[in-house]
């Protein structure tokens, strides 16, 4: 239930302001919380959740953290090249798309008894395209492989 008092913000306003830290709350918000039990419950739940987040421990980095960074940076001259050059990936994707457009339009032109065979061809090409798209979405992974190689080095 929304409650108001003269010169006091509404419950909705107060609950919107509760996102702020306690130390930054205005006096009017505190006054509202002093008499509005419903908003007080909301505030207490938010504060409890905020406090509970402190249950997570701080993890210390391993002593070899900095050395690990340097190891990843060091042998830039021996970095492996990406498995597939970026221009080749895009060319392959464009070629696949063009092939699908051509085959699809050819099939549509033929129609009739060839529908079943044509559908199979389209399905196969769609699969190729899907696989290509999957490759494209994981380009970062391919590019990161060089780091993997560096990590494996003694």
């Amino acid at each position: 239930m929304t409650m108001t008092q003269p010169d006091s913000p509404t419950c909705n306003t107060v609950r919107a302001m509760l996102a702020e830290d306690i130390k930054t709350r205005s006096e009017s918000i505190e006054r509202h919380l002093a008499w509005c039990a419903a908003c007080r419950v909301v505030a207490e739940r938010l504060n409890s959740a905020w406090t509970l987040l402190g249950a997570l421990e701080h993890r210390e980095p391993s002593p070899r953290f900095a050395a690990g960074v340097m190891a990843k940076l060091a042998p830039t001259g021996t970095r492996a090249r990406p498995l597939i050059a970026p221009w080749l990936r895009w060319t392959a994707a464009a070629a696949t798309f063009a092939a699908i457009v051509v085959v699809t339009s050819t099939i549509l032109d033929r129609g009739g008894t060839e529908d079943k065979a044509a559908s199979a061809v389209v399905a196969e090409l769609d699969l190729d395209l899907l696989e290509s798209q999957e490759l494209l979405t994981n380009l970062d992974v391919v590019e990161e492989l060089d780091v993997l190689l560096l990590l494996d080095e003694p």
């Binding site: 919107a16 509760l18 996102a19 207490e44 504060n47 509970l52």
Partner: peptide, 24 residues
């Protein structure tokens, strides 16, 4: 940014409500 933090707090308050007694 404020809205995101607020929404996150609201969701967390709901999910962590059963454990609120441990917060104090």
């Amino acid at each position: 940014a404020k809205l995101r933090v607020h929404r996150a707090k609201a969701v967390l308050a709901k999910r962590l409500a059963p454990y609120a007694k441990d917060a104090g």
